[in-house]
Every structure is written in structure tokens, then in C-alpha cells.
Design a binder for these strands. Structure first.
Lengths: 343, 343
DNA sequence: CGTTCTTACTAAATCGATTTAGTATAAGCG
DNA sequence: CGCTTATACTAAATCGATTTAGTAAGAACG
């Protein structure tokens, strides 16, 4: 029912080719008369060009896809926002989907985006789809990884310097005299998402460098719904940790809930530091010390890398993959106190 | 470079038609032999069907679009999540874009989504695009409005009972003896977004019904970056309000920031109630009383309405537009106190 | 006047899948 | 055996835009 190029051509009394030229402002040898007739027909018919047909012929959709783990987090929404801003400059639209870090969903969405001919993908990858990514690499399909690195997939990747992030967190606690530092992460497993393993690694390394032995009892990992139990276990140790590192925003909230329920006062009863920023960090009581990611920068950079791949001409050789590790920032607030002033 | 139906047909030694039948599992009179050959060819070529070509022929993309004001809010992300869940049941994908409530961006995105032939749209509309919506209505294009109502556009709409929301807020303050109740909203203007005007209207109505005269000095509206100033003005009135209604999550955060900066204690110095839920409401100090929207329900319902429109057969008459006003819920927590116990 | 050039357009192939109408062969039936 | 029916496919048109090669008419030139 919507009108087509043909309808416009018919009504204007010219050929489809001429209308197409007009639409692209290729007025090479086109009479004013004809231009006017076409413009009129377009308006009378409320003509909107069919981008699907256009994409088929052009083999370009001017869309890039983001395959994210979840849009329900501040980090992801900011990253997506930055990607949109960067792409908009080139007239490219962005579509997003959620995998919930489920490798099957991830596989399905990536395939489906490719089937829909998006010009490239920005992916928060899991380890389990190595085969798929390998074949995408082989076929020269443009994509970049964000937030996580996958060993053996040699593709442009933008992520946080995770070790530095937990290192900053641990250091600022050690400087305050803490030695019993608990850490909470999401599930690890052998196929751990790099964000998680690297943050834990940074914790271990920094403690060792500071001459503090890592006590595995202070390391807890599990699903979101297990967090309250895990935090409970941590505080029932003797001695309990004097400080906690929450390795992401959702875990941080869990710790705050626990503290509230158990009437624990921060930083009197324990110091707390979170990786990832949260909206309320600065006005919470107490203001929460966090290590924040440069999320806009991460989004922007990954979009730039993707657009560079897309612009690569067919004949040009694929350039070597680059890995960008962006630095986190420590935001010192008031949830960390000197160890000896606690308890 | 990706392989096509034709490549598969050639390699399997059959016609394109046969491969197409195979892909749709229409095995009507197809020999096992042929099936095997086709399957093999598909695997060898890593064939993924081109959905763009498919969409062109089918005149269906199996995509619906969401034109939202911002994805940086909890309400929107939850709504989108619910829409995705509902659409996934029918194998339909969802794409989202941000208008920042800019009517021009809104117009551009709606047009662009239609050009991309999405099967229908769920829109957070502004008043300024009435003409566009009118013509979409005329052409029978499937769409629904969400979160806001536009007078004169007779289309399925799902939104909060906004008057009830602020009524619940005001009532719970009045019951505690408050009479000087301040309210903060985003800009109103003559083309106000219904969410804003209705929430303010509910405030006015409820005060009147309670026999309290509305003092316009207690009503402040402005942009996010003006909020600190506006809140300051509110508290410098004499007498200042004993309670504040923040009409959305972002404004609520601004009030909390102000309270923190001015060392005002909630609810001792003033009571506070927010419309929209925020992640930290339950564990904040004090826990914040909120009026929450059934965001998942709103998303789900709007998706159902859209899918119903899409499924409507060409010949069936368009059914009458329906408006669903979903009820908010009061979440009594501790940021509201009896008026006489304050100060 | 014949040729070339410029101007202003158009015809037709193409992108990759879908689908209808049809073909060719084998099997079944009386 | 001739006819119908079932089986297993295929040819070709189609979706709506793009683009290349080409046409037709008039102007310019020597």
C-alpha cells in the first residue's frame, strides 16, 4: 500500500531512473520542469523510499548492531549512547539486543544481525562462541569486541584495564591499613568472562605486591541471587574482612542491602569500594568510593574501530587487530576509612 | 562475498526453488537424497539466508521499532525489556532509538523506521508531530503510543494513570498532616508532555479535594540543569514546604543531592516522595517512599496491542483504538513522616 | 549537409529470496 | 495401453530501488 518509486514515476510522467536520480540530487542535465513534477508527485503520494530494497541493491544497510549482555546497567546504556553518537555522525543507525550472557542467545542474535545484513557488529562476547567468531574473522565480516577479550580471536577489542581497576581499589584499601579485604564477583568457572577473571587477578596481584597473603576465604563468587548468602558467609568469618571490593554495580547494591539489613555502618563496620559507578554514589550516606570506567570513551572508541573496518575497501588488506585497554579512575569518597579507626 | 541461495543451489545441483522449499521445511515430495545434498551445501558454504531480500519479497521484516525518549532511565529500559520478551514469543525482534524528546529527532527516526519497513512502532510521542501521526493513522500503519497520550490521535495508547500517581503521593503526605507540599516537574509549556501535566493536575486536584489551597509558589518546573536552583527557591520560601513530591526519578536524585549538600535530613527536615522507582529506594538512608509504575506491564501491554494491529488482516476493519491507564503502586518506606514531628 | 557533442532522459539488468504455474517422469488403474 | 494421479522437481515473475548502457533530439561546427 505505501507508494513506490514506480508510482512516483508514473504520476510524474517520467521513468523510474529519473526519479531515482532526483532522489540522490544527481541533477546532471535535469530540467527544472521535471524536478518540479517529481517533487509534486512525491508530496502527493507521501512517498518514503523503501530502505529494504535499497539495502538489497547497495549491499549496505547503514546499520550497525550492538550485541550486549544487558541493557539494564548504567555502563551498557552509556556505552550504547556513545556508540550512537559516533555513528550518527556518519548517518549510521544502531540497533541493540540483549544476550543476558547466554551463549546460545548470543549466537542466535549475531547470526540474525548478520542475516539482516547489518554493516558491522559491536559485541560483548562470551567464550563459548569462539567457532562463530573464527568464521566471521575468516569471512572478513566487520566486528569488534567490547568489554571482554577472547583469546585466540584476533579482532579489534576495547576494554577496561580490569587489573588496574581492582588494583586501584585494593591499593586504596591497603593504604588505609586494610589487610583483610573481601572480594565479591559473579561466577567464574573455567570459561570465565575476562572482566571477572581479570578483576580478581588484579586483586590477587596487588595484595601479593603489598606483601599480603591472599586468603581464599575472602574471595566469594556466585550469581546475583546467591549474593546475600555469600556476603553473609564473608561476615561470619573470624576475623571478618575489614573491607569489601564489589566488582560491579549490581554486587555493590547487594552489599548495601546487606549492610542495611544487618544494621552495619559503612565505613565504621567495614570499608566498601565498588567497581563501576552508580547514580547514587556521590549522594549516598556515606558517599561511596568507586572505581569508574570511562564508558563513553569505551563506546566511542569501539565505534571508531568498527567504522574504520567498515570503510576498509574490498581490496585493502585487513589491518592488524588492535587492543585498547582504557584506564579506570578512582573516585575517592567516604566509604573507605582507616582500618584502625573501624570496629 | 557471503554465499547466496543461488550458490547453494548450484553446489547441491538443484534449483533455487528447491533450496528455498527446503529452508522452509516444506518437504512436500522431496527426496531424502536431495535434502542431504542441500544440507551439505549449506554447511560447506556457511550459508545464512539474506533477510533483507526476504523482507523485500515478503513485505515483512519481523522487526518492531521502539521510539523512546531516552534509554538512560530505569522505566524505559524495563519497558523495552518487557516489549522484547513479548515479541520474542512471536519471533519478532525489537530495535530501539532515542529521541531525547526532541520532536525533530522523533520525526526523523519514525520516518527512518518506516522506510526500513519495520512491521510496527511503539512510540513515546511528543505533541509536535501530530501531522505525521495523523498520516500514519490514515495509511493504516501499525503503531501504539506509550507513556503519553496525544489528543486527536486516535490510536492504541498505554500509559500510567498519572493523576492517580500524584494523587497517591499527595494523599499519603496529607494523611500525615502535611499542607505545605512542594512539587517539582520538568518543563511544562503549552505543548506539555502529558506525563508532566497530568501529574501536576493530580497534585492540584488532590490538594483541593483535601481542602488545601494550591500555592503556586510551591510548584516549580524546569530543566534538569535548573533543578538545584529551583529546589533552593522552594526551601527559601517562608514558610518552606514540609514535604516534596519529585515527579520522576531524575528529579528525585536532584532533591537527594540538594539535601546532602545542605545537610538537610530526610524526613526530619522535610518529607520526600518520588514518582518512578529507583534502584536504591529500598536501601537508601532513609528508604525512599515512592509511587512506582508497572513498567513491565506497560511494556507488555503495548507490545500486545501492537502485535494485534500487525496481525490484523488487510481486509478486516481497523478496530477502535483503546486507551489503557495502568495503576501506579504506593511503596511506603521511611522518607515520609508526620508533619508535626518534623522541624 | 553530415558529423559530433551536448542535453535530457529511458530500458533493462541487477540485488537475493519467494512463489506460482508448470514440466517430466513414474506409478496406478480399468 | 491409454489415461489419470502422484511424485519430484524447475522456470520465471516478483518485491522496490540502483545503475549502466543507451537512445533521441537538438545544437554546434566546419
Amino acid at each position: 500500500m505505501p507508494s513506490t518509486l514506480k508510482d512516483v514515476a508514473l504520476r510524474a510522467g517520467v521513468s523510474k531512473s529519473t526519479v531515482s536520480q532526483y532522489l540522490h540530487q544527481r541533477y546532471h542535465y535535469m530540467s527544472e520542469e521535471t524536478k518540479k513534477k517529481i517533487q509534486l508527485a512525491i508530496e502527493e503520494l507521501d512517498y518514503i523510499p523503501n530502505e529494504v530494497a535499497r539495502s538489497l541493491k547497495q549491499k549496505k544497510t547503514f546499520i550497525v548492531g550492538v550485541v550486549s549482555s544487558t541493557i539494564l546497567s548504567k555502563f551498557t546504556t552509556e556505552v550504547v549512547r556513545a556508540i550512537e553518537d559516533e555513528c550518527q555522525l556518519k548517518g549510521i543507525q544502531v540497533i541493540v539486543c540483549n544476550t543476558d550472557d547466554d551463549p546460545l542467545k548470543e549466537n542466535k542474535y549475531v547470526q540474525s544481525m548478520i542475516a539482516r545484513q547489518v554493516d558491522g557488529l559491536i559485541i560483548f562476547p562470551t567464550e563459548q562462541n569462539r567457532k562463530l567468531y573464527q568464521s566471521m574473522l575468516k569471512s572478513g565480516y566487520p566486528f569488534v569486541f567490547i568489554d571482554r577479550k577472547i583469546d585466540g580471536i584476533d579482532v579489534d577489542t576495547v576494554l577496561l584495564d580490569n587489573e588496574l581497576a581492582s588494583s586501584l581499589a585494593v591499593q586504596s584499601l591497603v593504604e588505609r591499613g586494610h589487610t583483610r579485604i573481601g572480594i565479591l564477583t559473579f561466577p567464574l568457572g573455567q570459561k570465565a568472562i575476562t572482566t571477572r577473571s581479570e578483576r580478581l587477578q588484579g586483586y590477587r596481584q596487588t595484595l601479593q605486591n603489598s606483601g599480603i597473603e591472599v586468603d581464599e576465604a575472602y574471595v566469594k563468587s556466585g550469581r546475583l541471587d546467591e549474593m546475600q548468602t555469600l556476603i553473609g558467609e564473608l561476615f561470619r568469618l573470624s576475623p571478618p574482612p575489614s573491607a569489601i571490593v564489589a566488582t560491579n554495580d549490581m554486587i555493590l547494591e547487594q552489599v548495601l542491602i546487606y549492610a542495611k539489613n544487618q544494621s552495619l555502618s559503612i565505613p565504621r563496620d567495614f570499608s566498601l569500594i565498588g567497581i563501576d559507578d552508580v547514580s547514587f554514589a556521590s549522594f549516598y550516606t556515606p558517599p561511596i568510593t568507586t572505581v569508574s570506567q570511562p564508558s563513553f570513551e569505551i563506546g566511542k572508541r569501539s565505534a571508531q574501530l568498527l567504522l574504520r573496518q567498515i570503510d576498509r575497501k574490498e581490496h585493502e588488506p585487513r589491518r592488524a587487530a588492535e587492543i585498547f585497554r582504557l584506564s579506570p579512575a578512582l573516585n575517592p569518597r567516604e566509604s573507605v576509612q582507616n582500618a584502625n579507626e573501624q570496629d
